[in-house]
């Protein structure tokens, strides 16, 4: 009962929190922008490859997975910042102090606060997915691509699993930001460090792909990807290796990182001295 009470209270807080809506609007706006740019490029670009790529993006049922991949790439970073903002503000505003002084369990408070973040992350994913599908359908109409694939049974059957995987990945990203901000005891520091780690991992992965494919953000981008194995290309003195975990292995890695992030956040909060 206490768990439900606290979770409901946290959800109510996030509904009123400007950061929730700013993050969602930003995600939707960026997604919309991508579709607009895609369609415009397809219609105006003299390159046939551009038109072909755009048509692939708006051809169902494959468009479902591509929309989710786009959401994971943009939304992944936004989830990190959102988690950091929510987690860090409890320390910065002193509201964790007030709860602890009332006898609330520190770890339960931390985990249920995160749980509300995860719920909002999933809701954001659903909103973005709906917008993405609408955008893809609109794009298909603009580019003269048929929409028969939207009701493809195999495609629809895979949707819940794809959404679940994407939700898990975004939840892990949010947990990562949440944990970093908790350790930093600051939403600003958490956002900065989280974003920094996000990009640093991406850059490091170019040089050590075999290692960094296991890291949180690389793994989260692989949970829905149909690609597997390594692709080597290039001429002359350079060779580009693109390595990505297969989706099932990526799910395991993401789950592990999610657990680690929550254990770190709850464990740190349990042992830390809570100041003013």
């Amino acid at each position: 009962m206490a768990v439900v009470r606290l979770l409901v209270a946290n959800l109510r807080k996030l509904v009123r929190r400007p950061a929730s809506w700013v993050t969602l609007v930003l995600l939707l706006a960026l997604l919309a922008l991508i579709f607009v740019a895609l369609i415009a490029a397809a219609r105006t670009s003299p390159e046939p490859e551009a038109a072909l790529g755009a048509r692939l993006f708006v051809t169902f049922p494959g468009a479902y997975e591509l929309v989710l991949t786009m959401i994971l790439s943009i939304g992944g970073l936004l989830a990190v910042t959102y988690g950091a903002a929510i987690g860090g503000s409890e320390w910065g505003w002193g509201t964790l102090k007030a709860a602890v002084a009332r006898g609330e369990s520190r770890s339960r408070y931390t985990l249920l606060n995160y749980a509300a973040v995860a719920v909002f992350t999933w809701l954001g994913l659903l909103c973005a997915f709906v917008l993405g599908v609408v955008g893809a359908a609109a794009g298909a109409a603009f580019l003269g691509v048929g929409l028969a694939g939207m009701t493809d049974p195999d495609g629809l059957r895979e949707l819940p699993e794809l959404l679940g995987r994407a939700g898990l990945a975004l939840a892990m990203n949010a947990a990562f930001g949440y944990a970093v901000a908790t350790l930093a005891r600051s939403q600003l520091a958490g956002i900065a460090v989280g974003v920094g780690l996000f990009f640093a991992e991406g850059i490091a992965g170019l040089f050590l792909p075999q290692v960094f494919q296991w890291f949180p953000f690389s793994a989260s981008s692989a949970v829905t990807s149909p690609l597997s194995g390594a692709q080597v290309g290039g001429a002359g003195g350079g060779a580009t290796v693109v390595t990505q975990l297969d989706p099932n292995t990526a799910v395991l890695a993401v789950t592990a990182w999610l657990v680690v992030a929550l254990v770190v956040a709850a464990g740190f909060t349990e042992r830390a001295e809570v100041g003013g």
Partner: peptide, 15 residues
């Protein structure tokens, strides 16, 4: 034990 204790420590903390 703190269920029977009410506290205002340093500055009040609110959202």
């Amino acid at each position: 034990r703190l269920f029977d204790v009410g506290a205002l420590i340093e500055s009040p903390a609110f959202y």
